[in-house]
Design a protein around this nucleic acid. Structure first.
Lengths: 103, 103
DNA sequence: TCGCATACCTCGAATTCCTATGCATAGGAT
DNA sequence: ATCCTATGCATAGGAATTCGAGGTATGCGA
């Protein structure tokens, strides 16, 4: 199950924590949500490419365990977007929670 | 600004409160979220029709102030879906909040 | 050497939402 | 009387996001 629209923000959050590569980012999101969120690769990579084209993340090649990987790091612009997205998440989620109540 | 995927649940919540018609449902969502959520009519009506085709709401014609309106009420099946949706909202929103933190 | 986890990528379909547009009525203002 | 605004319902076209399915390749352990 997933939450439409939150993926770019979750990616930025992961990269604000540490530069990483696609596969690792997806794992982090899944682990940190205790398996609740689980974005597929067919969703993740296009989202990553889009963030790069928007200048919110930068990529570079890196080698780990003898394998070449594509790493991403957040840019200054990306950090600004992340801050805005966090604030927006708070506002919207509070609004929905307010309506749906505790029930 | 809006939250993808929450509209059907918000509609069901409104109708669980009281049978209503499209325009009024949209107003209720906007008011109860203090203007944060604001679904457009072009989004609302198709969503309402879909809920009806799924048997989660029923519609009937009603007259108020001399005008004919299409009213909707939630069905038993709709109430079950609402309960599930509430639980799912809690789980997903908590997962995202857990990751995005308080920052 | 075979299988598996890792790692990256693309495509088509489905869903959701927005904007724009159309039609129609009630009530108040001019 | 006429016009404007809010109300009320609806559809069409397009953008964005996600999923499922598929393809390619490497390192490592059995």
């Amino acid at each position: 199950m997933n939450f439409k629209g939150t993926l770019p923000t979750l990616i930025l959050e992961a990269l604000a924590h540490e530069p990483s590569h696609g596969y690792r980012i997806a794992q982090r999101i899944k682990e940190r949500s205790r398996g609740v969120l689980d974005f597929k690769e067919g969703t993740l990579y296009p989202a990553l490419h889009k963030l790069e084209s928007e200048g919110l993340v930068e990529s570079y090649e890196g080698v780990e365990n003898g394998r070449t990987r594509r790493y991403y790091r957040i840019t200054k612009s990306g950090k600004g977007t992340l801050a805005k997205d966090r604030a927006e998440w708070r506002e919207l989620s509070q609004a929905v929670t307010m309506i749906l109540g505790e029930a």
